[in-house]
Structure formats: C-alpha cells, structure tokens
Design a protein around this nucleic acid. Sequence first.
DNA 1: GATTATTGTCACACAATTGTAATATAAGAT
DNA 2: ATCTTATATTACAATTGTGTGACAATAATC
Lengths: 236, 236
Amino acid sequence: MSDPTILIVDDEPAIRDMIGITLDLAGFNSVSAETAHQAHVAIVDNRPDLVLLDWMLPGGSGIELARRLKRDELTSSLPIIMLTAKTSEDNKVQGLDVGVDDYVTKPFSPRELVARIKAVLRRSSGNQQDKAIRVFDLQLDPSSHRITIEDTPVDMGPTEFKLLKFFMSHQEKVFSRDHIQDQVWGGNVYLEERTIDVHIRRLRKALGSVEKTSINYARLVQTVRGAGYRFSVKPA
Amino acid sequence: MSDPTILIVDDEPAIRDMIGITLDLAGFNSVSAETAHQAHVAIVDNRPDLVLLDWMLPGGSGIELARRLKRDELTSSLPIIMLTAKTSEDNKVQGLDVGVDDYVTKPFSPRELVARIKAVLRRSSGNQQDKAIRVFDLQLDPSSHRITIEDTPVDMGPTEFKLLKFFMSHQEKVFSRDHIQDQVWGGNVYLEERTIDVHIRRLRKALGSVEKTSINYARLVQTVRGAGYRFSVKPA
DNA sequence: GATTATTGTCACACAATTGTAATATAAGAT
DNA sequence: ATCTTATATTACAATTGTGTGACAATAATC
C-alpha cells in the first residue's frame, strides 16, 4: 500500500503547516482544509485514510463535522482524531459519544501525534479494510486483491475491482452515477456520465465470465432506471 | 442524472447575473428571482435542488422566506445557502436557528461559492436518511429505490415511483391533479390533465400486479370524483 | 523500448418510459 | 331514462435512458 493520506482540518495556518511537516517527515501524505466545508469537499476529493480534526473550528463546526461523518454510512469508517486544546473531560465524553477514534490534546509532541495516528490506522485497517466480503460464492478479498467465484479467480481491471468493492460493501442501495464517481474515482475528476455504464458493463462481463455457476453473479449488479445502479442479492 | 438546478434569490440584477454565470460555468442550471414571492413561485415551478438566498432582501423578507421554507413540510428539506454581506455572528446564529444549511459572506469568490454548493448538495444527497415507508405489506424504500409487496419486488417506472412516494408520504389527503403535477413533475411543465390519470392507472396496475395478496393494493389509490386522488388505507 | 492491459469516450443499437389522443365506462344531474 | 360530465382504459409515436462494441490514448509490465 502507498503512503496513507491524512487530512488536516484546522483554521490556523501555522498549525496546519506544522502538522503537515511533521506528517511528511513521518512518511505520510497530507492535505489540509480550513473549514468544515472544505474538509467535506476534501474528503470526497482526496479520500484520505484519516482525518485530524480541530475541535474548535469557528462556529463550533468541528464537532458537528465529526458527527456528520460518523453518521453517514459512506464515511463512518473513516478514522478521526480530534485535536483539542482543552483537556476537559467534557470534551472527551462528548467526543466519544460522536464516535471519534482518538484524541490529541494541544500542545502535543510530533512523536505523540505520529504514534497515535499509526495506532489508529493499524486498528482500523486491521478491522475491516482487509476483511474479505462474501456474497454467496462470490468473494472479494482486499488483502490479496482478488475476486473469486466458487474459488475460481475472476479477472478484472483495477477500476472494476474498486467498483465491485464499493458495491459489495454498500449492498441494497441505489447510487447515482455521480455518487459512484465520487466513491470510486474521487470527486475531482471529470468523467462522461456514460463512462460509468461502460465500467458497469465490464464488471458484469467479468462476473458473468465464470461458467457453470448456480447463480449469475452479473445479475447482482442491477440497473435502476432513472436512478443509477444497485448491488443487490434480491431479484431486480 | 441531470445537472442540479440552483435558484438565485437576490434583488440586485448584477449579482444575479454574476452568480448565474458562475453557476453555469460550473455545470449547474440556474433560475433567479428578485423577491421572496417570486422565489416561492420559482420553487414550485422549477423544483430547484438548492436555493441561494440573499439575506438582505427588501423588507427583510430573506430570512422570513428561509423560515417559511424550512417550516413547510414540502420544502423543509430543500437546502438553503444564505448570502450575507455582514459577517456578524448575530446573523449566523439567527440563521442556524432557522435551519439554513450554509452561509457565504459577500464578497465571495466564485470558487468558494461553487465549492460550498457542491458540499451542501453532496451532504444533502448523501445523507439520505429517508426511512422506508410501509403500509401493510407494501413497502417503499427510497435508499434501495425499491417497492415490494410481501417482499416481492414491484416493477414500475420512475414517474410511478415518485407518484407512489408522494402518496405514501401524504396519506389520507386528496390532491388535485394540479397539485400532484406540482409535486411529482414540477410546476413548469405543461401536461394534459388526462396524463395524470394515465399515470394513476399505471401505478394501480403495478400495485395490482402482485398476485395472491390478501389486500388489493391498487385500491389504496382512490379516485375522489371532482377533486382528484387520494392514498388511503380506508375503503373508498 | 516493446508489448500488453487498462481507460475513457464515442456512436449506434436497443429497450423502457412518457405524454397524448381516441375511445370506453362510470357517476351525477335533469 | 337520458344527458352530461368525469374518470378509466387502451394504443401508439416520440422521447429518453441504458447496453454494447470499437477505438485511440494512456499507463503498466516485461
């Protein structure tokens, strides 16, 4: 895996820079955002592996952002470390409520910050990132980056892999082409809408390429006319 | 999905135009209104995805409009971004009270405006907390975009889906054809009145297509002669 | 550096959906 | 009963949305 990307959300440029340098030295990539909204956009665009979030963003929106991220299914597994100047127990309690993964109280040492980041990343990657997802005899194993149907390897391109991974971890839900683009390609690239269709086709083709299975796995990728696509075990 | 439509509400033509051009370049459709009243009409007619609302409309009606929109059930989920010249905290507090989704303080850069719009749109479309609506064994699930009767999928077109969704979330109320057209099609399209009837028919047909149910779900869509249609669990 | 795989886009084929008009049926009014 | 008006139903042509194969450009691999 390439270096993890950390999103720094803080309204003070000095702190952003300082943390950015620290992370850089520790071998992370970093992007930063100044406001909760910038952060939200950056998350969609850059798909960071972890968010460092200042508690005290102007307007109290730091905690609000955390809450929103944890509530939304699509971002709920994105680890968040809160940066807080106060050591008050109140904050911690409130934050744990929201579901953030850890705290670092300012001032902090670079070493401590990096250690906590690594700890959280270790925890979260061990938890779900690498766990294989299975639907009937279709299995997607992120750690070995493999798709198998009844133990027969299925060949597909990287994009189709990501697409299938996204679908398999968000079953029974329709996603518009825009949404799929956000999730699979990232929000900052421009794609013709029909491009999604083509990749859907390639994915279906790959899933259907395994012969003599009781189930036609291509059927699981369903078209919802006028709305987008859906991965579902139930018939269309 | 087609481009989102943004409604610009501002009394200054120059600002309306400037924003309009910006949005156009960013791939949005835009319509504009000069007064709160025009805005209200435009909302019904164009069903915009987001409203850019000037705080300082003549007569202080900007904030008033926001309040009204957020209070009315039919428009309460329509995202609103306030445009305000003042950065005073008072405004923000008052506005958050009303429930607007974000603020942009003039002067603002086109980039910022577009970024905020996208962020809000993503938030509002991503956080589809829409719960499934259920009536006996008829279930409409917005997130999976599925209709089922006793777990059997019911097939229908997008328009019928929208129609049923509207009905199911507004049960026991008669709606005139005009009203239905406003809600399901949006007010600016011209339809023959009989067209509604045809879609009602298609909806009934779809609901009735599932065999051997104890209830005939087509019966829930009731004709109220001289008035319109009604979705009701009580017999007609 | 050559070869191969993957990617995004286009053009066209195909299918579902849509709105309307024409006609049939039902419900009130006289 | 008959007339009048409102709604139901059917069929159809136009529109819109999706599927598919081919292609050139780019990236990955050897």
